[in-house]
Design a protein around this nucleic acid. Sequence first.
DNA 1: ACTTTAATTAGTTTTTTTGCTAATTAAAGA
DNA 2: TCTTTAATTAGCAAAAAAACTAATTAAAGT
Lengths: 90, 90
Amino acid sequence: MNKTFKALAHPVRRQILGLLRSGPMISGDIAGHFDMAWPSLTNHLNVLKDAGLVHSERFGTQIRYRLNAGAAEEAIAAIMALLGKEEKDG
Amino acid sequence: MNKTFKALAHPVRRQILGLLRSGPMISGDIAGHFDMAWPSLTNHLNVLKDAGLVHSERFGTQIRYRLNAGAAEEAIAAIMALLGKEEKDG
DNA sequence: ACTTTAATTAGTTTTTTTGCTAATTAAAGA
DNA sequence: TCTTTAATTAGCAAAAAAACTAATTAAAGT
């Protein structure tokens, strides 16, 4: 879970997740949304992937990234467990 | 919201929030839970406070920290907005 | 085989974060 | 007022994260 929270800590990475909410995107298109060198962006994508928040798949010369719903659920559960009210028993 | 996510990125800070879930604690008692110099811990508390995740109040010579429920709710809402499924209209 | 397009990895520098020790502040007690 | 207790702020060193350029990989077209 540590990797997940670390991944969410950077604004660019959160913006990437925001973009991917509306569907998968290829690396170059994602990079086009940011004022940043492409390799820097690739690094952010790797951080997200390593945290399991996104998935990647190659299609010919291009690589498509998509949001991983499962990890998203887990992240939400974790943050709720951490910040939510303490349950008085069951 | 950036400060909130930054604050959640460090394991010690998440553990502090975990401790505070069951009620307010004074600085020294929090520090006692960690294998770390007290000033380092104070710094983590400051990061949490700056993010609005905790509140502090002085009682005589000691300072009591408590979880800020409001900021917690906001953080949960933010992460759900970011990672949740895209709603098809209303 | 060579070129082009898409993207990544490698290596380095800069910036940010973390954690330490020493010094300081604040309140309370003797 | 001097001391003790509780905690912070200041200043610095070490570690981690972020961003850049250059080099490399991978697939596909000519």
